[in-house]
Amino acid sequence: MKKVAIAAALFAVAASAQAQSSVTLYGRIDNGLEYESGLPSGHRFAAESGDWGESWFGLEGSEDLGGGSRAIFQLEAGLNTQTGAYNNGSLFGRHATVGLANDNWGTLKLGNLGAGELSQDSWDIDPQVMQKYAIATLVRGRNWAQAGNGFEYTTPTLAGLVIKGQYDLGNSSSWNLGNSGPGQLGNAPGSGLPGSTQGRSDGLKVQYTTSGLELLAMYDEIRDGNGEFDNVYLNSRSIMAGGTATFGPVKVYVGYQHLSAPDASDVGVYGTAGVPSALPDGVSLPTAVDHEWLGAAWQAMPATLVTAAVYHANANNGNGNATMATLAGTYNLSKRTFIYTEFGYLHNSATSNIGLGNGYSDPYGANINNDPVTGNAASTAPNYGHSQTGVFAGIMTAF
């Protein structure tokens, strides 16, 4: 009888612990087809993963600590579901955090913030919700920034107002320097050249939401491994402000972003001194970009959403301007599955060569057609002054 009582007590404790804790497996898969023209080599038709949004899977959980507090964690991996490979540089490159949450005191997270870097919150004021042809396109992927080695605090919502702050350490003996290895342009940390590993980054977001209205302001900065703002599209300061207003079935979006990289230099981007640059006359690495957009989403039917938007960016130091027009739609097949499509047309001025590749396949610089010495043979960026057109369609399902 005594053994039965002990077993019952242990079972009750286990059941209580189970009730106070939870772990959720979640994810989504996005695959589709894409056609783009205006590439240096002509046009292409391809199968793509993640044109509407990156595929991923993850685990998140919480444990009730009492007094309204919870321990929380999240592990999330990005996937290329055309090849089975993982994205974002590592298995849990999107998120690997642990922290504490309390409805009255807010939420603290520590670890790899990954795709939670503050600039990615810009999807809130993007009419195309950060699809491939959207708010990150004309700034060559700057709004897709990621950050590790960090911590984040988010306040509770107070009268519609929420504030979020982030700080990401370089984990170096020098305050702003990166930790190890070459960066996106292959230059080592401490070399004094652009594109070395990411250094310290930080940011602050203020968001206010009320009935039918949302306002957002963000500041974030990402330094290179040398502690500098060396490339306006990679390591720079970003100031963003915008909002949405809802009128019945229509939601209107407007926004502005300014990027600044005062330490930008052609050195290390176009080779050593004496190697001719393929840039048009009078053009050098930009140190500032102004980016504006306007759009609207129309809930045409309960299952059908249509969005249209125009984005425009001006880069200094002779880099000209680019304008992109987009039209997209989604149709819900169920609560978890929808089909989608988007059309994008990007027009460049004479000294601009921004492409539809979001900065991944078309980073700043000349392509091989312009410069066989320092150009990027794999670049999908158009020639200077040329346009690009793209359309994609696919299916997304979540679990």
Rank of each mutant, 00 (worst) to 15 (best):
L110A: 15
A273S: 13
A245I: 15
A315F: 03
N31G: 12
L10C: 09
F343P: 05
V252L: 15
G242R: 04
V162E: 14
E48S: 14
N149L: 09
G27I: 10
L177F: 09
M218S: 11
I368F: 13
S349H: 01
I163C: 11
P286Y: 06
H95W: 10
V250S: 05
E214F: 00
S196T: 15
Q207G: 12
I354L: 13
G390N: 10
G248P: 11
S172E: 10
Y167Q: 00
Y86R: 08
N112G: 04
Q184F: 03
G148W: 00
D290Y: 00
L346E: 07
F45M: 11
P262I: 11
F229I: 00
A19H: 05
G268P: 06
A46G: 08
S196E: 05
I239F: 13
Y364S: 06
M1L: 08
N87M: 12
Q388K: 08
T137Y: 01
L39A: 08
R237Y: 00
Y167L: 13
E63M: 12
M218Q: 14
A322M: 04
V23N: 07
F392C: 10
G66Y: 09
E292C: 03
G359K: 01
G150Q: 07
A7P: 00
S196C: 03
S211L: 04
A5L: 10
A71T: 09
Y331A: 11
P189W: 02
Y340R: 10
T337N: 05
P194T: 04
Y384K: 03
T380D: 02
A159S: 15
A14E: 08
Q166F: 00
T24C: 00
A47M: 12
S119P: 01
Y360Q: 13
A264V: 05
G318Q: 07
D30Q: 08
W298P: 06
T155E: 04
N332F: 05
V139S: 05
N176W: 01
K132G: 08
G84Y: 05
L204A: 12
I6A: 12
P156K: 10
W144F: 13
S174V: 14
N104Q: 14
R140S: 15
A381F: 00
L204R: 02
L193M: 11
G53R: 11
W293M: 13
L110N: 03
P249S: 14
T326N: 09
G375K: 04
N179F: 06
S62N: 11
E54K: 02
F11S: 14
S180C: 02
F338M: 08
G375W: 04
S379D: 06
G32E: 10
S211C: 06
N319C: 10
D202T: 07
D103R: 07
A313I: 04
K109F: 07
G66F: 04
S180R: 03
F11A: 15
G359C: 02
T157E: 15
G178I: 04
V373I: 14
Y345R: 13
G390Y: 07
Y360V: 14
D230P: 02
G61R: 02
V275I: 15
N316Y: 01
A46V: 14
H347M: 12
E63I: 15
K132F: 08
S21P: 07
P40Q: 04
N319K: 01
F11I: 11
G375S: 06
L234Q: 09
A5E: 15
A19I: 03
A288C: 10
T81A: 15
A188V: 02
F338V: 01
A14Y: 02
T157Q: 14
L213R: 03
S236M: 04
P363K: 07
L279W: 00
P156W: 10
G271D: 07
T137M: 05
N316T: 05
